[in-house]
């Protein structure tokens, strides 16, 4: 896939694009980083987002967008190398360390991130956040999962349905 011209080229400065969050905050970011988003990539390839225009993202607030871009900026160099056979083990370890730190966040932020990553179609981020949520679920009973993620108390019908399903697999009622 043709990557947008990056700062490594002869042109000197990297091409920048502007993203606008739902609360009207403008973020200027390298096109290569923003292009990790499949949703944005087409627009950027068409030349959008440059100059004073900016790409509005009505579904992503500024706090979430800054977090998303933090991820994209960190991962853009590796992505530009296209899977990077020349990436060193040190680079990969550094990315891994970053990823682990990155998702060590409050679950409401995690929730916003998973929604944003889905909407912007950032594959790596989707997978990273999904794995974090999966790790939070692991080893827990259905009721414990509900408590961990702050589900409201189940309605009597919901409870009955859960009980039937749990009984089938041998979980004790709680």
């Amino acid at each position: 896939m043709a990557a947008p011209e990056s700062g490594d080229g002869n042109n000197g400065a990297a091409r920048m694009v502007t993203l606008i969050s739902s609360d009207n905050t403008r973020f200027e970011v390298e096109a290569a980083a923003a292009s990790l988003s499949q949703t944005l990539q087409l627009t950027i390839l068409d030349g959008g987002g440059g100059g004073g225009d900016g790409i509005p993202l009505p579904n992503v607030d500024s706090a979430t967008l800054s977090k998303v871009l933090e991820y994209c900026i960190k991962h853009a160099p590796a992505a530009a190398n296209g899977g990077a056979p020349n990436a060193t083990a040190v680079d990969r370890a550094e990315l891994e360390r970053f990823d682990n730190e990155f998702v060590n966040i409050d679950q409401s932020v995690l929730y916003s991130l998973i929604m944003a990553a889905h909407n912007l179609e950032i594959e790596g981020l989707q997978s990273l956040v999904a794995k974090k949520v999966a790790d939070m679920i692991k080893g827990k009973s259905p009721m414990e999962i509900r408590r961990t993620l702050g589900f409201p108390d189940p309605t009597p019908e919901e409870q009955a349905e859960m009980n039937a399903h749990m009984l089938e697999y041998g979980w004790a009622y709680e």
């Binding site: 999904a130 949520v133 999966a134 679920i137 692991k138 999962i145 993620l149 589900f151 859960m162 979980w171």
Partner: peptide, 28 residues
């Protein structure tokens, strides 16, 4: 969390082994 899109839930499910996947199915 109970209103997450199915597509998103599927990406979470990919990271779960069977017992957790079944616990997942009981949640809501």
């Amino acid at each position: 969390w109970s209103d997450l899109l199915v597509d998103i839930l599927l990406t979470i499910l990919q990271h779960l082994e069977l017992p957790q996947a079944i616990a997942f199915a009981s949640v809501c």
